[in-house]
Design a protein around this nucleic acid. Sequence first.
DNA 1: GCCTATGGTAAGTACTACCTTACCGTAAGG
DNA 2: CCTTACGGTAAGGTAGTACTTACCATAGGC
Lengths: 103, 103
Amino acid sequence: MTYESALHALADPTRRAVFERLRGGAVAVGRIAEELPVSRPAVSQHLRVLREAGLVRERRDGVRRLYSVDLEGLRALRRYVEGFWNEALLAFKAEAEGTGKKR
Amino acid sequence: MTYESALHALADPTRRAVFERLRGGAVAVGRIAEELPVSRPAVSQHLRVLREAGLVRERRDGVRRLYSVDLEGLRALRRYVEGFWNEALLAFKAEAEGTGKKR
DNA sequence: GCCTATGGTAAGTACTACCTTACCGTAAGG
DNA sequence: CCTTACGGTAAGGTAGTACTTACCATAGGC
């Protein structure tokens, strides 16, 4: 939901790998675990963090659960980074023009 | 430099507070520490992580060191998030149109 | 040359969080 | 109803990390 939780969630390499595995579309938990060097419970736990950060959604398919990227958390993160980027750009230009408060 | 290190650097709340303190322009280490509930060495250590992630630059001013936002790391992070965002948007539209590979 | 201000580094500690194994719940098939 | 497949949860071990205090290096004023 918030950019804080999104940053926290994507900071871990394994969790980021789980997240990026969903780039192509929805994937079941077991499938993800097969392709990563961690156990299935570990993947489950990562998916929970990602879900609480609004980065991932769950859809039931019988006994399986298909996870896919959620735009919600991504939007929050995007807004944060974009805002900072624009602000930094302005500060940089001001600095270049000598408008920045020096000393 | 890389989006990985940027994500890792910005995941910590205190380190993010240090980073965001530089929004308005360059600030000295001691000044940052005064306004945060952590010691000056802690701030120094956070600044090192931020610098190694390309998020922050250092400029010497006599015995003081002024830190400011570096566009380099921000650019890497921005590219990562933006790329993921666009891809997720496409996947979402494909899903909505029933073009996504179901089942 | 000495003293002070500023801040980076070292060493130690406490806490967090990531991973594992073990266990449990549930849906589908015979 | 029993078995199997799938996956979430619990408990515990371990490694990483964020903080502190103590120490050291350097620039500038007197």
